Amino acid sequence: MPLFLILVTLLFAACEKDVSVNLPQQEPQLVVEGRFENGSYPLVILTHSLNYFSQIDPAVLTNAFVHNATVTVSDGSKTMTLKERVIDTGNMKFFVYLPDLTQPANNFTGKVPGTYTLRINADNKAYESVTTIPPRGMQLDSIWWTLVTVDDSTKARLWVKITDAPAFGNYGRYFTKRNSEPYLPGLNSVVDDQLVNGTTFEIPVDAGVNKNLNPDDRPDEFFEPGDTVTLKFCNIDKATWDFWRTLDFAYNSNGNPFSSPTKILGNVPGALGYWGGYTVTYKTIIISR
C-alpha cells in the first residue's frame, strides 16, 4: 500500500469516534399534492408530513391523510368546492378531494390557457396557491422507437420530436404507460427550453418508473417488442417544473454520499408540496415484435 494511503488509513483509525445525534421531533406540516389538467377536474391530496425515521406501513400512511378540510378552486369568476372521497385499492384506502357532484353548476374543467387558485383550510390554518394551465409552448410532434441490444436481449428505445415556441420559458413533464399499466413519470421527468429554445429537437425518452419499488425490482428504461406505449406529455409552468425538477434530483441522489443537499421547491406557502397545472397531449405507438 502506498505511504499516503497508509497514513490516511491510520489517521481515520485514530480519529474514529461514535457520534450520537439527537434529532428533534418536527411538528407535522401539511403536504399538498394538487393537479389540474385541461379537460379534467382538479384532484387534491392532503397529508401530514412524517418524521425522517418514521416506520412506513399502510396504517401509518392511512393515518397521514388530512380529513374534513375545506378545499376550493377558483378560475377568477367561478369557485368550486372539492369534497373528500375515499378510494379503496384493497391494500389501503386513499383519501382525495374532488369536485362536489351535488353542485354541478359550480364545477368546471381546466382550460388552455387558464389561471387557477387553490385555497385550503385545514388544521385551523389557511393556505393559498396559484397555478396555470399554460399554452403548448412545447409541441409534441411525433414519437417513434428504435431497437437496441441490452444484455443479449432485444429492447426498444422510445424517441420523441418536440417543437419549441420562439419565446423562452417553456417547460414540460412526461409520463409513459406500458400496455395496461398506469401512467408513470420518468426518473428525470421534466424538460425545459434553456438550450433548445425556438428549435425542433429529438430526444430519447426513458420508460416511466414506479418509485415505490426497490430499484433492483424495477424494469429498465427500455420497452419490449410487442408493447403498446402511450406517452403523456404535459406543458407546465415554471413553479411546477421547479417542484418536480428538485424532487427528481433529490430522489435520484438518495444514498449518494457525494451529492449536495437539495431543497424541494414547492409553491404552496406555509405547506409542503405543489399545486400544478398540466396541458396534456397523448400519443400512442405499438412496438413491433
Rank of each mutant, 00 (worst) to 15 (best):
residue 14 A to M: 13
residue 101 L to E: 15
residue 150 V to Q: 11
residue 175 F to L: 12
residue 211 K to I: 14
residue 214 N to G: 06
residue 239 A to E: 15
residue 213 L to M: 13
residue 49 S to E: 02
residue 7 L to H: 14
residue 254 N to K: 15
residue 104 P to G: 05
residue 1 M to K: 09
residue 152 D to G: 10
residue 223 F to K: 08
residue 74 S to K: 05
residue 59 A to C: 00
residue 271 A to D: 02
residue 178 R to Y: 07
residue 30 L to W: 12
residue 55 Q to I: 08
residue 42 P to K: 02
residue 150 V to N: 15
residue 269 P to V: 07
residue 110 G to E: 03
residue 4 F to K: 15
residue 180 S to M: 12
residue 210 N to V: 02
residue 106 N to F: 01
residue 49 S to V: 01
residue 108 F to A: 01
residue 95 F to D: 04
residue 185 P to A: 14
residue 289 R to M: 07
residue 11 L to M: 08
residue 143 I to L: 11
residue 245 R to Q: 14
residue 64 A to P: 03
residue 141 D to V: 02
residue 123 D to P: 04
residue 202 E to A: 12
residue 178 R to Q: 10
residue 256 N to Q: 13
residue 190 V to G: 00
residue 261 P to F: 01
residue 248 D to A: 08
residue 141 D to P: 00
residue 13 A to P: 01
residue 128 E to K: 07
residue 231 L to K: 10
residue 256 N to Y: 03
residue 58 P to Q: 04
residue 276 G to N: 06
residue 12 F to E: 10
residue 78 K to P: 00
residue 106 N to T: 05
residue 222 F to A: 11
residue 5 L to F: 10
residue 145 W to T: 15
residue 81 T to C: 03
residue 28 P to N: 06
residue 149 T to L: 04
residue 283 K to C: 00
residue 106 N to R: 10
residue 149 T to R: 10
residue 53 F to K: 13
residue 138 M to H: 09
residue 109 T to A: 05
residue 180 S to L: 05
residue 172 G to P: 00
residue 206 D to G: 15
residue 50 L to K: 09
residue 236 I to E: 14
residue 198 G to F: 06
residue 42 P to W: 04
residue 124 N to C: 00
residue 204 P to V: 08
residue 248 D to Y: 04
residue 173 R to E: 10
residue 99 P to N: 02
residue 195 L to S: 15
residue 90 G to H: 04
residue 49 S to C: 00
residue 173 R to T: 02
residue 110 G to V: 06
residue 156 A to K: 05
residue 94 F to Q: 11
residue 53 F to D: 12
residue 90 G to S: 03
residue 147 L to V: 02
residue 273 G to K: 07
residue 153 S to V: 02
residue 22 N to L: 14
residue 129 S to E: 03
residue 274 Y to F: 13
residue 173 R to H: 02
residue 93 K to T: 09
residue 9 T to M: 09
residue 73 V to C: 01
residue 27 E to R: 14
residue 77 S to T: 08
residue 176 T to S: 14
residue 144 W to D: 12
residue 170 N to Y: 09
residue 262 T to V: 13
residue 81 T to S: 15
residue 97 Y to S: 09
residue 117 T to P: 03
residue 86 V to C: 11
residue 241 W to I: 08
residue 49 S to H: 02
residue 33 E to R: 10
residue 236 I to A: 12
residue 160 V to H: 13
residue 247 L to K: 15
residue 248 D to W: 01
residue 264 I to N: 06
residue 75 D to K: 03
residue 194 Q to I: 10
residue 83 K to M: 04
residue 35 R to H: 14
residue 244 W to E: 05
residue 273 G to D: 03
